[in-house]
């Protein structure tokens, strides 16, 4: 049975760049635990003869020809952006991180 700790929630929040308060850590730990326990019940019916499934349709090799298709203009691309500058998406700086 899953048992999600506050520390695990805090770690996940950090990876997801979410600010989570101490109170929320307790709340989410409990909620995530309930969700994972529910999903884990699927494992109870999985027998050895059932392979893990990632795709529900038995298809392979679906490809596209390497041909250019008209995309968006710069104005269209930036239309939904909260902020833009010099034709680029403008985002807040990311603290203490570098890819």
């Amino acid at each position: 049975m899953p048992n999600i700790s506050r520390d695990e929630v805090a770690h996940l929040a950090k990876l997801a760049r979410l600010a989570v308060t101490d109170d929320e850590l307790d709340t989410f730990a409990g909620q995530l635990d309930t969700i994972l326990s529910s999903v884990a019940r699927v494992g109870e019916v999985a027998a050895d003869d059932i392979p893990p499934t990632s795709h529900s349709v038995p298809l392979t090799n679906v490809f596209r020809a390497d041909e250019v298709r008209q995309g968006l203009t710069q104005a269209e691309a930036l239309a939904g952006a909260p902020a833009a500058e010099d034709g680029r998406f403008r985002v807040p700086r990311i603290l203490g991180e570098e890819q």
Partner: peptide, 29 residues
Amino acid sequence: NTNTKMFCGCRNEFGGEPNTQVCPTCLGL
């Protein structure tokens, strides 16, 4: 050096004006 990107038909070319080789797929819309 394909003509297009991996998962969409946007042009794969170095040095274009910013955000002119984009579409809903590669913007994650």
